[in-house]
Design a protein around this nucleic acid. Structure first.
Lengths: 231, 231
DNA sequence: GCAAAATTGTTGCACCGGCAATCGACATTC
DNA sequence: GAATGTCGATTGCCGGTGCAACAATTTTGC
């Protein structure tokens, strides 16, 4: 299958960021990737199985589901066109802790991990860049998870919220920002009850620390907010 | 510096697992690694800085410290000879979230990340293995952290303990096992108070679920223990 | 433009678990 | 053997937060 029409998508991924057409040509020639179409609701990946391929979503969107200890499953991430999945997994010998389901009809291409990790003898410069990108991608996911842990181990909800707000503001580069999260979603990320989150955000507003409206947040007193984290 | 005396140590690391002498010779020749000695209490790595080297501990032991939001720092890991540090970090563009301190006098060798990620033109087979090992190492750390998150998001302490016990038993391959953790250490991992942990373990013993003595645990009723995790 | 569904805020209640203090069992050192 | 330090267990207290229920508002679908 000719992947050229999808080169802009591929270039947008953290794995193949900024690669030129001729570079992609050469690499994809090496990889001989398989491409597959899915209907909404089909599974691209099943929890409990190993995988030796890195998937890139060319069309549509997907949901990652994690099986809870009690048998049901909860959504943990959503990804749209250009999304990468199986990247961490294919490099490890672990069985997948998540299933990946097609949220809409979609199209995915799979790069064999063996080919990625074993640069061919021609040793294309772009392949080395790809390797670096792979490690970078995985490492960044590691640190994202690490920050999450740092949030989760904070005992009081007030601290978790404060840390999260400061982190978001830092990321946004300004003290006013919006996030694409509902209250329920934020509560889940912060691992607390939705009503408790509302309650605490309300308190923090009354104390003049922040202002909130839906997904928008404004930090009014950064210093005092930082001091909330002390314990 | 001649590293030959340390080849057994290097072979024991997840990065250079099982490499033959001649392979190590060739690779270390490529890498031109630096070696440095530290006195007890010196820092091998400082939080807040980037690093572009993977460190391997050749002698002695080290402690990884994480700066808490309130300014102090807590120990999160200890490593002895053969320990690997900076592996995840050097592949990312993140600033180190941890400092690494020499717990005893020690000796470390540093492999430049650039050289690791850019296999030289001679394309040694062992270098490709090294790359695979690097990705494997980082991926495994990711999944270890992922399991930690899964523990932490469980609301009740009873569930967290039950999950942990089942995971440990699974890892040990039998229902009786010992872990090198004090109660305080376990409490920290499970993110709870030490006394609360004792209380709950006591309750679980009275209920006939488990038996504990110091660092030893015995699961008496695996089925019922699993059912504890339901909510 | 209306009904249904989703999202958010609010509040009372109950209870889990953090905290602090105390005790006993052991190990280590002088 | 006395002194000291480490580790685990126990207990009373009470504050934070999960839970359930309901109201207010916005969004979605037809």
């Amino acid at each position: 299958m000719n992947l050229r029409p999808y080169y802009p998508v591929l270039r947008g991924t953290s794995l193949l960021r900024g690669m030129r057409d001729d570079e992609l040509d050469k690499m994809l020639d090496c990889f001989a990737p398989r491409v597959r179409r899915y209907q909404k609701g089909e599974f691209l990946m099943l929890a409990g199985y190993e995988t030796r391929e890195v998937g890139i979503l060319l069309e549509g969107s997907i949901t990652a589901l994690k099986n809870t200890p009690d048998g049901s499953s909860v959504a943990i991430t959503e990804m749209s066109t250009g999304g990468l999945f199986g990247d961490v997994l294919s490099g490890s010998s672990t069985k997948s802790p998540v299933s990946v389901m097609a949220q809409t009809d979609c199209l995915a291409v799979y790069l064999p991990y063996e080919k990625i990790i074993h640069p061919c003898a021609r040793l294309h410069e772009s392949h080395l860049q790809l390797l670096q990108n792979l490690v970078l991608t995985i490492s960044n996911k590691y640190f994202a998870l690490d920050r999450r842990v740092e949030l989760l181990i904070c005992k009081s909800l007030r601290v978790r919220i404060s840390l999260w707000l400061l982190e978001q503001a830092d990321e946004a580069g300004q003290d006013t920002f919006a996030v694409p999260l509902t209250r329920a979603g934020l509560a889940e990320y912060l691992n607390c009850d939705r009503s408790a989150l509302s309650r605490e955000l309300g308190r923090m507003q009354r104390e003049g620390l922040i202002e909130t409206f839906r997904g928008s947040f404004k930090i009014l007193d950064k210093e005092r907010l930082r001091s909330q984290c002390q314990e």
